[in-house]
């Protein structure tokens, strides 16, 4: 499918709202469910994801079109994308540990697990499949990250409000979180009539 018709800003907004990677593609669910108990830590993880997604989408674009394609090594794209992502997550971890020890402890094991956050690899693969340009790819990565953050922060806010609520016993914890995620996904589907990027 030719995507040249869509400009970078359109893709950016579409990635946030109409094609939210978390709520329409259901990628990056595990940390979405695990770290969304508080707005503060959701926001921290969200910023880390935005940074990693934006940078890695650009970098992966360059790696794919300037290293893998010329050498005819497109079949190496998974391993190449994964090491770029892993190196970036390592960098983000170092930065967070240095700048915010509290956030570092709250994120705990989920920070290194961004490495295998499927949303991030998903962005890299989608941009190849949809034949985005460099600018479109970065816009898609940034929009995807912001969309993911929007979803997890909204989830964090809802779960904070729910803390005092009476929830039927069998639905406590992950049960209610999945129901909320489903309702949020329905809400985001309402945006999908505006623009379609798949």
């Amino acid at each position: 499918m030719e995507q040249l018709g869509l400009s970078a800003p359109v893709i950016f907004f579409a990635a946030i709202f109409t094609n939210n990677i978390l709520l329409t593609n259901f990628l990056g669910m595990c940390s979405f469910l695990a770290i969304s108990r508080e707005v503060r830590s959701s926001l921290g993880l969200g910023f880390a994801v935005i940074f990693v997604m934006t940078c890695t989408s650009g970098l992966n674009y360059l790696v794919y079109y300037y290293l893998l394609v010329p050498f005819g090594m497109e079949h190496f794209r998974f391993i190449a994308f994964i090491i770029v992502i892993a190196a970036f997550v390592q960098l983000v971890e170092m930065v967070i540990e240095r700048s915010s020890p509290v956030l570092y402890v709250i994120l705990g094991i989920f920070l290194p697990l961004i490495t295998v956050n499927c949303a991030i690899l998903g962005v890299a693969l989608f941009m190849i499949i949809r034949k985005y340009t460099f600018l479109q790819s970065v816009a898609y990565g940034a929009g995807g990250g912001i969309g993911w953050t929007l979803a997890i922060v909204a989830m964090g806010g809802i779960r904070e409000k729910l803390r005092g609520a009476k929830i039927p016993k069998p639905l406590e914890g992950p049960g209610i979180a999945l129901i909320i995620a489903g309702l949020m996904a329905l809400a985001f589907v309402a945006f999908s009539g505006m623009i379609q990027i798949q």
Binding site: V63, L67, L68, F71, G72, M73, F76, I79, A80, I83, V84, A87
Partner: peptide, 12 residues
């Protein structure tokens, strides 16, 4: 291809 991939790893 091996060199290219290793180079990428080494750079990172």
């Amino acid at each position: 291809s091996i060199a290219a991939l290793s180079g990428l790893g080494a750079l990172l």
